[in-house]
């Protein structure tokens, strides 16, 4: 795609359209965030912690699962941002 987009592709309008897309749960950009977040969790947590994580999800204890992730992966959102940033810079 890199070569297909013309110069000036990162237009403000395009930014706006992408952000507007976030209002739709099944939009590609939301799917991408979900997938990237899960990938970060799965590739960062140890096996033991992943198993605990699955266990908490199985018990519908989402809050504890969230605490586990945020405790074990400091700056989780920042790390996610870096991943999304890297990808956007490659595909935009």
């Amino acid at each position: 795609m890199n070569n297909n987009l013309q110069i000036g592709k990162l237009s403000d309008k395009l930014h706006e359209m992408i952000l507007q897309d976030m209002d739709f749960e099944d939009s590609e950009v939301n799917r991408y965030l979900d997938n990237q977040a899960l990938n970060l969790i799965l590739t960062t947590l140890s096996l033991q912690r992943r198993l605990e994580f699955y266990q908490l999800l199985g018990n519908n204890d989402f809050n504890s699962a969230k605490v586990l992730v945020l405790n074990d992966i400091p700056d989780f959102h920042k790390k996610l941002l870096v991943k999304v940033e890297d990808k956007f810079q490659k595909i935009l």
């Binding site: 990162l10 952000l19 976030m22 979900d34 977040a37 959102h77 990808k87 935009l92």
Partner: peptide
């Protein structure tokens, strides 16, 4: 587990956090 993970992703990233991340990544790009 897949359905639980879907529900979890909404908890770990609330809408405003999602927007921050995407807006930030776009700005950086």
């Amino acid at each position: 587990l897949k359905s639980k993970l879907k529900a979890f992703s909404e908890r770990i990233m609330e809408p405003h956090t999602r927007r921050k991340i995407v807006a930030g990544a776009l700005a950086a790009a």
